[in-house]
Every structure is written in structure tokens, then in C-alpha cells.
Nucleic acid binder design. Structure first.
Ligand code: MN
Ligand code: MN
Ligand code: ZN
Ligand code: ZN
Lengths: 134, 134
DNA sequence: TCAATAATAGTAATCATTCTTGTTTCTGTT
DNA sequence: AACAGAAACAAGAATGATTACTATTATTGA
């Protein structure tokens, strides 16, 4: 039996904040973003609802950058670039892993693959420009 | 001028522990592994030396699983599978991203790519077997 | 309206990692 | 071997992100 889920204005706002940006925000970013409109919002509420969204598959985690987890409201398979200078996480359209590869690896190693992701690491264009004028 | 690096028996042991396993250990794992032979080893020393190795490029980080960073003494480009059940990190030989793709993406988005990695998520063979007899 | 239950704010607790400080170990030189 | 300066260390405190707890408030369906 599934648990009943009541409506909550704050939950909706948290989801929309994550879905409405491409910056792959942290929980803290969402909290600061919504604080003006919801002055009594609690950081724990942001974390609790994010955990639910992740669990439902409504959002995904892009991993941890500088000790903070980054989330993504875009659940279509796509690729990410992480700037090791400023921590920006940038979308790279396209899926670099073929479905065939997934199936072959799963069979060869006797494991079940649920998802695959590609990550590029480097320096983003902003940070490159800022480093130039030496 | 580069900083002089003195020899340290513990540093060597920490590096060998990481290079001598394919389990992609945590700092805590390394600490527990070496504790019997080095009873006065400090967890801080493990972290400090790991940070150095990472900085030198002697080892790499495979990312964070269940809140703990995982390290890899194999710095050849290869692929990883992360079990979402038990947290195991397993090597998958092979590099799925062509060098050409790196160059093309770097040019198109005006950024510098230093490395690329592929990550599979799913259930490992051990956990699959344990789940079967229901 | 009203009782049952879900969600929240505020705060305390947890846990991985980093920092600080006083001590010990290395290393090159007498 | 003894010495001095630099590097590494142990132990424990501090930090910071995340989670857990609890008393209160909001939502829901009858
Ligand atoms: Mn994205
Ligand atoms: Mn590996
Ligand atoms: Zn950047
Ligand atoms: Zn497993």
C-alpha cells in the first residue's frame, strides 16, 4: 500500500525552483531562492522534499561538488561538465553511451544497469577568460 | 620552487594500500587496514596524504558514495559501476569516450576538458543473487 | 466542523572531513 | 654520532553538510 501524499505549497515551490533552473543547484541554493517568498521555510524541509523527489525519480542527483550534492530537474539522459575551478555544472546535450553497450556490459559482468552517465571535468569558459589576463 | 617532500613510512603504506586493492576504498578503509601494522596511525594523516596524492595525480577520486569519497590507485582511464544497493565500486575495463569527442565538445562550448569519465549505476551481481530467493 | 494524518519549523544530532597545536621524525651537515 | 631546520605526525577540536526529532500547523475527507 502506498502512503498518501498531501499537497504542500512549499513542496511545489521547491520542485519548481529545481525544474526552473539549469544551474544544477544545491539544497542551500533552493533554500535561499525561496526564502524571500516563504520566510518561514526551513532548510530541513528542502532536504526532506528533495529526498522524496529523488526517490520518486522526479529529479536526479548529479553528484557532489565541493562537498555539496547537486540536483537536476531535467531527467532526460544527458551529459554534464563540471568546472574544477568554480564548481559550475553545465549541460552537454547528447547521450554518449549506447544502449547496446549497457546491455553488453550487464551481461558480461552479471549485473543490472539502471542508468549510465558521462561526466567531463575541466575549466569552464568563464574561468578560462578570467585566467587569461596575466 | 617546489616544496621538498620528506620520506615517510606511513605515506608509503597509505599509497600501497590504495594501489594494492581494486575496491576503491574510503579514507576510513585505509585507516582500518593499516591500523594493525601502524597502531599510532591517525585518520587525519590518511586524509592529509590522500589529498597530496590526489593533488600530484598519483591517485584519483571516483566520487562520493553514501557520503564517503572513494579513491582509485589505477589512474589509467577506465570505467566504473556503482552498486546502489551495497555501494560497491567495480572496474569496467575500457574507455567509452573517444578523444575526438572531447576535442569537439571543448571547441563547441569554449571550455577546457581535462578528463572524462563514465559511470554506470545499478545492482551488482552479489546483491542480485541475495535478492533472488524471495 | 472535526478527527486523522501529513507536513513543517526549529533545533539537536550525526558524520565525514579539515584544521590546530604541540611532538616526533627525516635529512643533510658537522 | 650530534645538531638544526623542515616536514610529518597524533590527538583532538572545529567545521559544514545532511539527517533526525519534536511540538505545532496544515490538509484532507467525511
Ligand atoms: Mn543537467
Ligand atoms: Mn577503478
Ligand atoms: Zn568555472
Ligand atoms: Zn551490490
Amino acid at each position: 500500500m502506498e502512503k498518501k501524499q498531501n499537497y504542500s505549497r512549499k513542496r511545489e515551490a521547491i520542485l519548481k525552483a529545481i525544474q526552473g533552473t539549469t544551474c544544477h543547484p544545491t539544497a542551500e541554493w533552493v533554500y535561499q531562492k525561496l526564502k524571500p517568498e516563504y520566510p518561514d521555510l526551513s532548510l530541513g524541509t528542502v532536504y526532506r522534499n528533495i529526498a522524496q523527489f529523488k526517490n520518486d525519480g522526479t529529479i536526479i542527483s548529479v553528484g557532489t561538488v565541493n562537498g555539496q550534492e547537486r540536483y537536476d530537474g531535467n531527467i532526460q539522459p544527458h551529459t554534464h561538465f563540471v568546472c574544477s575551478c568554480c564548481g559550475a555544472v553545465i549541460d552537454i546535450p547528447g547521450n554518449f553511451i549506447s544502449l547496446d553497450a549497457n546491455v553488453e556490459i550487464a551481461e558480461r559482468y552479471h549485473l543490472r544497469i539502471d542508468s549510465s552517465e558521462v561526466l567531463f571535468h575541466g575549466i569552464c569558459s568563464n574561468c578560462l577568460q578570467r585566467q587569461k589576463p596575466l
